[in-house]
Computed example of a mutant assay.
Amino acid sequence: MLYGVAIFPSKEVQDVANSYRKRFDPHYNLIQPHLTVREKEEWNDEQLAKAITHLQSVADQTAPFTVHFNRFSTFYPVGNVIYMALSQPEPLVKLYHNICSGLWKEPGKPYGYTPHLTIGQQLSSDELHDVLASLRKTPLDLTANIDRFHLLYQTENEAWTVHQTFQLKG
Rank of each mutant, 00 (worst) to 15 (best):
G4L: 11
A6G: 13
A6S: 13
E12G: 02
V13K: 06
Q14V: 11
N18K: 13
S19L: 03
R21N: 11
R23T: 12
R23E: 09
F24Y: 14
D25P: 02
D25Y: 01
P26V: 04
N29S: 10
Q32K: 15
P33C: 01
P33R: 00
L35K: 01
T36F: 01
T36C: 04
R38F: 00
N44Q: 01
E46N: 09
A49R: 09
V58Q: 05
D60S: 14
D60F: 05
Q61P: 07
A63G: 05
V67R: 03
S73K: 14
F75G: 00
S87M: 12
E90I: 05
E90H: 10
K94S: 08
K94T: 15
K94D: 13
L95H: 02
Y96E: 05
I99S: 05
I99L: 08
S101P: 04
G102R: 03
P107I: 04
K109T: 12
Y111H: 07
Y113L: 02
Y113V: 01
P115I: 00
I119T: 07
Q121C: 14
Q122M: 14
S124A: 06
S124K: 10
S125H: 15
S125F: 07
H129P: 04
P139Q: 11
P139V: 11
L140M: 10
A144S: 15
A144P: 05
N145W: 08
N145A: 10
D147M: 11
F149M: 05
H150A: 13
T155N: 12
T155Q: 10
E156L: 12
A159P: 04
K169Y: 01
K169P: 02
